[in-house]
Nucleic acid binder design. Structure first.
Lengths: 216, 216
DNA sequence: CCGCATCCGGGGCGATACTG
DNA sequence: CAGTATCGCCCCGGATGCGG
């Protein structure tokens, strides 16, 4: 990026991560961890391939991303955030928190979606109200072809990860918008089921982590 | 900005504040509060006037900025952040914190600087180690023509603001880089004075708020 | 299939000039 | 003071090609 030419901490930060697509590349690397060029491409629908290559080079030069060869059997380059790169987590979190209100209207026509993008809303809205009880796991399925998300309670906190789960306490199936409504507590489970949400398992497991705002 | 077309909180946020210059406009409005178009221009050296106008329109449409007429005597438009706009403070703070390490090498040739940009480093590095004592005020002067910054202790916290101060406990005069070195504790007062820092007043007032890292 | 490089059209951006 | 007008350039987006 063209430098702003300002001796200011914020401008200097934006000189490195202010380019178009750059923060979304950081988002993908934060939520996926180490992954391949092609994985990044899949997680960044709309990006031009040359731009992704350019950005990765710039981020590598800036000490934000590192590149390493995968183990012999799979000939692939693996990309990871450095410690310096992971230090951008608060910025991404802040952006995600600020962006949540922009999602209540649902996706615009043609909007892309990936299940793992629910990780921030999930960890933002949910908390474990009964940490003394046994841990629960809730699976979110937003699309048939995609890997589901698993929401798990761990020591009173709630974490979201990509992947399967052997014996989930509950399974939610539906559109991203509907699932987001349930996670945020803006829609009750009953309402959501009327709107097409699929639900299996223990409703209490869901209530345990849902925000208390339901009372309002 | 062209939308990223992704139903994701971070992408949605960047659809609004991801454009070039936009976050720096937010920075200026956060640190200055209500101000005029021309004030913004001065605080954003390098921006094209049409871009500033474009961005302000977009931010107004997005509910981030509001515009109002000043009181009759001065015919001027005053721009302010809305509540929604001020909610970007954590993002700006995160960027500023992340950008601090990029400033230790000093300004590049031709870099612009404004005294008020020291507000983030000041509040980030400094803390009041003896809150039980009377409040202190330290003035920073980085340039003859510019308004100085005042650092004040208030209830154990440290705040930075633009403006003068009647009876400061200490006055630092020097280049931004030198002053930053002192504020961050990377350079001792004695070293900084050797490098051209001007210092008047009570060295103890400075030590009271400087980071403890000096021991290292 | 992976990881790019290259080419090309369009528009955002930057600089300057100008106006109510 | 607060913008609008204009213009060249380069970044961006989309498509294609290509070596490993």
């Amino acid at each position: 990026m063209r430098s702003y030419g300002q001796y200011c901490a914020i401008a200097r930060a934006l000189d490195v991560v202010g380019d178009r697509w750059t923060m979304l590349i950081i988002r993908e690397l934060l939520v996926r961890g180490e992954c391949r060029y092609t994985d990044l491409r899949d997680g960044l629908p709309g990006i031009a391939t040359n731009l992704l290559a350019d950005r990765l080079r710039a981020l590598e030069a800036a000490g934000v991303v590192t590149r390493r060869q995968a183990a012999p059997p799979v000939a692939a380059v693996l990309l990871t955030l450095t410690e310096r790169g992971r230090a951008l987590q608060p910025v991404i979190d802040g952006l995600g928190r600020w962006g949540i209100p922009l999602m209540v209207e649902g996706p615009a026509p043609g909007d892309e979606f990936r299940g793992r993008w629910l990780a921030w809303p999930a960890e933002l809205f949910l908390s474990d109200h009964r940490p003394e009880e046994a841990a629960v796991a809730i699976v979110l399925r937003t699309s048939a072809g995609e890997a589901p998300m698993v929401i798990e309670t761990v020591d009173g906190a709630v974490h979201a990860r990509e992947g399967e789960c052997d014996e989930p306490d509950a399974i939610l199936t539906g559109t991203p918008h509907t699932i987001l409504g349930v996670l945020s507590g803006q829609v009750t489970l009953a309402e959501a089921r009327d709107r097409g949400l699929g639900f299996e398992g223990d409703a209490d497991a869901l209530a345990r982590v849902q925000p208390h705002a339901l009372a309002a």
